[in-house]
């Protein structure tokens, strides 16, 4: 036999043997395959080994090498298959299924996103869609159009960060009200989530940049009753069946202006540390859109009226998830972000 034929035989043996050993369905089949290929007496490997004798002296080293490769491979395949068949047929008690699963990393939306999405869902049922706008704004959109008198103490609550050259960072999402009113014909029913900025030092209860979510409804015949009823429905849905109350307040861009409280969920209204003894938790500011705001958008304020509200989803997140310091929301520690997922 010449070398080439021998190697071809070895290849065929390795291929067939591999298939038989790897394909053995159970221990009996494996044993049959072992006897057929690796058997001491009539195994094909034995036969191939014997055929080595017929190889010329020069070719013997190469042929011997090939033979060893084939035998080693088949032997190791047999061992592998035997182990896996043994494992598969081992009694069930031997497998400890209490061991942990192979999990993937858990992704999570930010807690503030969760609150925004929940609020969005509630208002969507009431026919609201989402509007967006830029954070770098003009003085007019942020203040002038919203009836802030120049040089007025009302500006003090909006400690503004100004941009060198032009503009400022919006201090509330209300500029988007004005942009929406200028762009689209009433009826308008929009919700405006977004980041706003105030020059407040970063501490346990203030962040210089924080989210706000604002709503605006403008149409013919919209009244204070609509405002109350809609926001009351919202509070019921977000906080459960709790009572609300409305208090007079002041915002330059609404009149009448109000703040809405919900009954404290911790004490049920009897007064506790969470609600500072009042039985109420302040949730949002609201009011009827000031006629001057409508007029700034070229809308006839005799024909149309509207209401608007604004609130801080980060504050809601902090109280909902029991977060002691608002900075935790923004530090982005992965252990925190993994923790709060819904």
């Amino acid at each position: 036999m010449n070398l080439q034929d021998y190697i071809a035989q070895a290849d065929a043996l390795e291929r067939d043997g591999s298939a038989a050993l790897q394909g053995a369905a159970d221990a009996d089949a494996l044993e049959a395959a072992r006897i057929a290929f690796l058997g001491d007496r009539q195994g094909q490997v034995k036969t191939l080994q014997e055929a080595l004798r017929a190889i010329s002296k020069d070719d013997k080293p190469a042929a011997g090498k090939r033979f060893n490769e084939a035998r080693t491979r088949l032997e190791s395949l047999h061992a592998e298959r035997k182990t896996s068949l043994d494992r598969a047929t081992a009694p069930a008690a031997a497998e400890d299924r209490s061991l942990p699963a192979r999990r993937q990393w858990r992704g999570a939306k930010h807690p503030v996103t969760l609150v925004i999405e929940e609020i969005e869902g509630i208002f969507r049922e009431l026919g609201f869609t989402v509007a967006q706008g830029p954070q770098a704004e003009t003085e007019w959109y942020n203040f002038g159009a919203l009836n802030f008198p120049p040089n007025h103490p009302a500006l003090d609550a909006h400690d503004t960060m100004y941009l060198e050259g032009e503009g400022l960072l919006r201090t509330h999402t209300s500029p988007v009200q004005m942009r929406t009113l200028q762009k689209y014909v009433p009826p308008i029913r929009v919700l405006i989530p977004g980041l706003v900025h105030r020059r407040d030092p970063f501490d346990a209860s203030h962040a210089p940049s924080f989210e706000q979510i604002e709503g605006l409804c403008v149409d013919e015949g919209i009244s204070f009753v609509d405002l109350k009823a809609t926001l009351n429905r919202f509070a019921e849905r977000l906080f459960g069946a709790s009572r609300t109350r409305f208090r007079p307040s002041f915002f330059p861009f609404t009149e009448p202006s109000a703040e809405m409280d919900v009954q404290c969920g911790v004490c049920g209204g009897s007064g506790c540390a969470t609600c500072k003894g009042t039985g109420w938790i302040e949730i949002l500011g609201a009011g009827m859109v000031h006629p001057k705001v409508l007029e700034a958008a070229g809308i006839d304020s005799e024909r149309y009226s509207g209401w608007a509200f604004g609130m801080g989803p980060a504050r809601i997140a902090v109280s909902r998830y029991g977060i002691p310091d608002i900075r935790i929301l923004y530090d982005s520690d992965v252990r925190f972000l993994e923790q709060i997922a819904e």
Binding site: V130, A131, V190, V225, D226, K228, R245, F246, R247
Partner: peptide
């Protein structure tokens, strides 16, 4: 506003009234 607050904000009914859908969709 003076009338509303002296009457009392809490004196107004809580009543969802019919509304028209808005002209905008989501941004």
């Amino acid at each position: 506003e003076e009338v509303a607050r002296l009457h009392g904000y809490d004196s107004f009914p809580v009543e969802i009234r019919p509304f028209r859908p808005g002209t905008t969709g989501d941004d």
